[in-house]
């Protein structure tokens, strides 16, 4: 499953901050990290990369959120899936 590290530029208004944190804390895919200078670190683990970008789109649209900026993306599963689809000989043929 893709693992993504990201930074959220936080809302400056307290109600919006609270709503954002409530949203994040109830999402089992999200692990929260440190917060400093209006930014919050988090890690997201999702079934697909698309699911992750959908989550970021949703968070970006929350009131007061400045931006959600990905910083780390592991997608080794992508190759595993492609190899499985192609079969063992095809997977190596282009390398």
């Amino acid at each position: 499953m893709p693992i993504t590290g990201a930074v959220i530029l936080l809302p400056t208004e307290e109600p919006a901050r609270r709503a954002l944190f409530e949203r994040l804390e109830r999402d089992p895919r999200v692990e929260l990290g440190i917060e400093a200078a209006g930014r919050l670190a988090l890690v997201v683990e999702t079934e697909t990369t698309r699911e992750c970008t959908n989550l970021f789109d949703e968070l970006s649209a929350l009131e007061g959120v400045g931006a959600v900026l990905p910083v780390f993306h592991d997608f080794s599963d992508f190759h595993d899936a492609r190899d499985a689809q192609a079969g063992p000989s095809d997977a190596r043929s282009e390398r």
């Binding site: 590290g5 440190i34 400093a36 200078a37 919050l40 670190a41 900026l69 910083v71 780390f72 592991d74």
Partner: peptide
């Protein structure tokens, strides 16, 4: 590693 990268970007 993902959390480390995110923390670095925050700090």
């Amino acid at each position: 590693m993902a959390m480390s990268a995110a923390s670095a970007a925050v700090l």
